[in-house]
């Protein structure tokens, strides 16, 4: 158990080591993309963040479903932590994307299918967190339904560029990148993923501690009331 506590610390240490080398590779070792120019370097963090957003969207949907079915506290904590990570990574994607689009396409927002589905995913998870935090008793079912709906939106985001005509490039573009660009993409993905998993881990532990504390307070109040009645 004590070793498990150090997992987020280890992940953050890996991320701290990877980030400087990743930035160095992106800006000094990777060639400038011929058509898009220097601004294409936003890609090395924008795309991994989008993958992380989608990954935790699915994790949140599965965990929320499990929590609803098995009333598992661990699943609930993972769902809340993953939901918050979707919001953070999603906001980063929704801001860095339009910045890149403004430079490359001349428009920050083109209302293409991938942008709309990504915006929808972000709003769904904001709704999920709001319902989890401020919803009345019994709102867990609505929250879980929102998380599952959000998870279902993930493949829609992926296939949006295949189904509809969009300004985003097709899904094959990333696969056809030259090896020099992959060399820069892997460390950026590793660093961001390690950071995201560490943050979700820490947040999930906080959520579990908060649940245990709530129970402990209720027990303490009950004990106090019982003592009062006895005297």
């Amino acid at each position: 158990m004590s070793m498990v506590r150090f997992v987020p610390v280890l992940l953050l240490a890996i991320a701290a080591a990877l980030f400087p080398s990743s930035v160095h590779t992106i800006f000094l070792d990777t060639p400038i993309e011929r058509q898009l120019g220097t601004v294409q370097k936003i890609f090395y963090f924008h795309v991994p963040l989008a993958w992380i957003m989608m990954l935790f969207g699915v994790v949140c949907g599965i965990a929320a479903g499990l929590q609803l079915r098995r009333h598992s506290r661990v699943a609930e904590a993972i769902a809340v932590a993953s939901g918050e990570m979707v919001i953070v990574a999603g906001l980063a994607v929704l801001i860095t994307g339009p910045i890149w689009g403004h430079a490359s396409w001349g428009h920050a927002w083109t209302w293409d299918a991938r942008q709309i589905t990504t915006g929808l995913l972000w709003l769904v998870f904001v709704a999920y967190i709001l319902v989890r935090r401020y919803g009345a008793a019994g709102s867990e079912r609505l929250a879980a339904a929102l998380a599952i709906f959000g998870a279902v939106d993930v493949p829609v985001i992926y296939y949006a560029v295949k189904i509809w005509k969009t300004t985003h490039p097709s899904t094959d573009t990333v696969g056809s990148l030259p090896s020099s660009m992959w060399t820069a993409l892997w460390p950026a993905l590793g660093a961001l993923l390690a950071t995201a998993v560490a943050i979700v881990w820490i947040r999930a532990r906080q959520e579990l501690t908060e649940m245990d504390l709530d129970d402990a307070w209720v027990d303490a109040e009950d004990l106090g009331a019982a003592k009062g009645e006895a005297t």
């Binding site: 220097t38 601004v39 936003i42 980063a92 801001i95 910045i99 890149w100 430079a103």
Partner: peptide, 11 residues
């Protein structure tokens, strides 16, 4: 570069 600084700064 201005766009990159904004994007990385926000991130």
């Amino acid at each position: 570069y201005e766009h990159i600084v904004w994007a990385y700064g926000v991130l």
